[in-house]
Design a protein around this nucleic acid. Sequence first.
DNA 1: CCGAAATAGTCAGTGCCCTGATTAATTGAG
DNA 2: CTCAATTAATCAGGGCACTGACTATTTCGG
Lengths: 157, 157
Amino acid sequence: MAAVDLNTHPGHLARRLQQAHYLLWNAMVSEEITSPQFAVLNALVAEPGLDQRTVGERVGLDRSTVAEVISRLIRRELLDKVRDPQDGRRFLLRLTDDGVRTQRRLAVRAARMSQVFLAPLSGEEQTAFFDLIRRVADAAEGLRNPAEPPAGRGAST
Amino acid sequence: MAAVDLNTHPGHLARRLQQAHYLLWNAMVSEEITSPQFAVLNALVAEPGLDQRTVGERVGLDRSTVAEVISRLIRRELLDKVRDPQDGRRFLLRLTDDGVRTQRRLAVRAARMSQVFLAPLSGEEQTAFFDLIRRVADAAEGLRNPAEPPAGRGAST
DNA sequence: CCGAAATAGTCAGTGCCCTGATTAATTGAG
DNA sequence: CTCAATTAATCAGGGCACTGACTATTTCGG
């Protein structure tokens, strides 16, 4: 019997975590706007006029996915897209008034949801939760892009 | 400036974690068989002859998703599906020889991948990592199915 | 036995997510 | 200046994931 216990597989856990989050987001934040869509709105509140590629970089989405998410936000009229006059390859993105209002409304709800989501953990544990996940995710991404010696400390190469 | 730091949003972290896992799985385990597909194969090694619904329960997939995953595994001839003679609603699932071999081969690679994935954490941290994620995910699922009072402690309603 | 409730699976529809190929615009080397 | 490399975005294609509506079968009350 060579079957493995899925509970020892980080991928399984990661998937379950995201499912759990999806569930709670739908129940407590919005059934219309998804979490990745909110991330895009949020990025554009912080830095209005970004282009698609950079938005993707900020929220951790590849070029194709970000294009889809953005097209949905445009369809809902939360976002506008105009050709960059300085560089005709780019589109500059900007929230509509409705987009700004939506981001504001959801930010409050998202914060509440996060509290509920993390409620089973103590304060210290919540810190550890973020720290551990971030370290694992960063390391895996690092394997992807091996380059980028962050200046100074050249670790072999 | 009402923008929020995404790094304080568990949903964002959860998504990044899964992306990281996806990446490493593709690089180190298989480009053909995905992690959810492997989970299904694995469940059927442990319990041959399960029906779709139960497989979904074991691996944490809803009925629709599990149906899709299974149909792909059947197309690849890793799996067979036969009507249950005892209960005509059900289909019984069973791995083909190729399915068994595939599960065996990938189990080894998946274990190696998990080690690499978790390498940035110490042994204790790895334990904490699993524990924290599992607790958060379980709690959120619990909110979903409010029933099942585990005996005793009736917390208000 | 019969019809209602429950259960297993399918289907349609929406959205996320990635890769590889392609198109359009810009930049940079000769 | 001109052509090649680079870059931003799109498109085609495959897979995961959920909901709600529907079909077929079984089960259970009367």
